[in-house]
C-alpha cells in the first residue's frame, strides 16, 4: 500500500546514509524539492545515480552528501560546467568523489534491465571509446546466435528511486506526462520508490489509455510537493526556468558564494513544500 508522507518523512524513512539513490527526470520533472530535503537532512556517503546530474546533483555534491556519482553527462545544459561537480572531481572539494561514467544509451539500457529483472543490459555501444578502459563496469559479451561482440553493463538497481510527477490520485496511482525520460524504468528498477507530485486529486484524469501511469502498488511513498521540480519544469504546470539555469553558472562558480546561496535558499528556507506537509 502506498504511504502518503510529508517530504521530510519520506526522505527520513527511505534515504539512509550510504544508500544508493537515483533522482531521475531527463531535464523535465527533476525532483529538486526532494534533493533539497536530502541536503537539509544532511545525508552523507550517498551513491548518487542520474544520467544528467544537472543542478540538483551539483548542489548535493557541493554540500558534501555524495561519496560516488554514476552518470552519463555532467554539464549545465546549454550553459557550461557543473562547477561543484568539477571542483569535487578536480580538487576533491568538499570531499573526494568517486565517479562511474557511462554513455546515455548504456545508462538508459541499465535502468531498463533493472526494471526487467535482468542482471545486465546488452547494447551495441561504446565502440572505440576510451570510456571502456576507465570503467570496469563496461564489459562485452558475444551474441550466442551471431557471434557479434556487444557491450554489457550491470543493471541499475538503486536502493531508492525518487521522481517527480504531475499528479497522484488518493490511492497513490501516479500520472507522468511529457518527456518521461527514464521515470518508469527507475521506479520499477529500485527497491523502493518515492514520488513527489504537483497535486493529489480524486481522479487521475489520465488523458489517454496509453498515458504513463505508475500503479500505486509500484510506489512506496507519495509526497505532495507543488513546484517541486523548479527550476526544471512540469509539463502542463510551469515552464523551465532557463534564466535560473544560466544564473547558476555564476552562483556555483565560487565555493563561498555557492555555500551562502545554499544556506539562504535551501538550508534556512521554509519552503511551500514543508508548509504543506
Amino acid at each position: 500500500m502506498t504511504e502518503f508522507l510529508s517530504l521530510h518523512d519520506a526522505i527520513a524513512a527511505y534515504v539512509p546514509d550510504a544508500s544508493t539513490v537515483a533522482l531521475e527526470g531527463f531535464t523535465h520533472l527533476i525532483p529538486f524539492a526532494a534533493g533539497h530535503e536530502i541536503v537539509r537532512q544532511r545525508k552523507r556517503d550517498l551513491t548518487l545515480v542520474r544520467m544528467t546530474p544537472d543542478l540538483i546533483y551539483d548542489q548535493l555534491i557541493g554540500m558534501g552528501c555524495a561519496r560516488k556519482l554514476v552518470f552519463s553527462w555532467g554539464g549545465n545544459p546549454g550553459v557550461g560546467s557543473l562547477h561543484r561537480l568539477r571542483d569535487a572531481v578536480e580538487h576533491a572539494w568538499p570531499r573526494p568523489l568517486e565517479i562511474e561514467e557511462h554513455s546515455h544509451a548504456a545508462m538508459a539500457a541499465a535502468y531498463a534491465a533493472g526494471a526487467a529483472g535482468l542482471p545486465c543490459a546488452i547494447l551495441r555501444g561504446y565502440a572505440g571509446s576510451d570510456l571502456v578502459a576507465h570503467n570496469t563496469n563496461i564489459r562485452s559479451v558475444e551474441c550466442p546466435f551471431t557471434g557479434e561482440t556487444l557491450a554489457a553493463v550491470p543493471a541499475l538497481r538503486p536502493d531508492v528511486a525518487i521522481v517527480h510527477a504531475q499528479r497522484a490520485d488518493r490511492a497513490g496511482n501516479v500520472l507522468i506526462e511529457g518527456i518521461t525520460g527514464v521515470q518508469k524504468e527507475v521506479v520499477l528498477a529500485a527497491r523502493s520508490a518515492i514520488v513527489t507530485v504537483e497535486e493529489i486529486v480524486p481522479d487521475l484524469r489520465a488523458p489517454s489509455p496509453n498515458s504513463t501511469v505508475l500503479p500505486h502498488w509500484t510506489i512506496t511513498a507519495v509526497a505532495l510537493a507543488p513546484g517541486g521540480a523548479r527550476p526544471s519544469y512540469a509539463h502542463g504546470y510551469y515552464p523551465r526556468d532557463n534564466a535560473f539555469y544560466i544564473a547558476w553558472d555564476s552562483i556555483s562558480r565560487d565555493r563561498d558564494q555557492f555555500t551562502r546561496w545554499m544556506r539562504e535558499h535551501v538550508l534556512e528556507s521554509s519552503t511551500s513544500v514543508e508548509a504543506v506537509a
Binding site: 531535464t27 544520467m51 546515455h104 538508459a108 518527456i179 518521461t180 519544469y233 509539463h235 515552464p239
Partner: peptide, 27 residues
C-alpha cells in the same frame, strides 16, 4: 537551452522514453 526544453515536447510529432530513443531509434 537544454536537450529537453518544453518547446521540444510541445511541438514534436511524438515523445518517447529515453531507453526507447536510444534502443529503437538510434540503435
Amino acid at each position: 537551452l537544454s536537450i529537453g526544453d518544453p518547446e521540444l515536447c510541445e511541438t514534436a510529432r511524438t515523445t518517447v522514453s529515453v531507453p526507447e530513443m536510444f534502443a529503437y531509434w538510434l540503435q
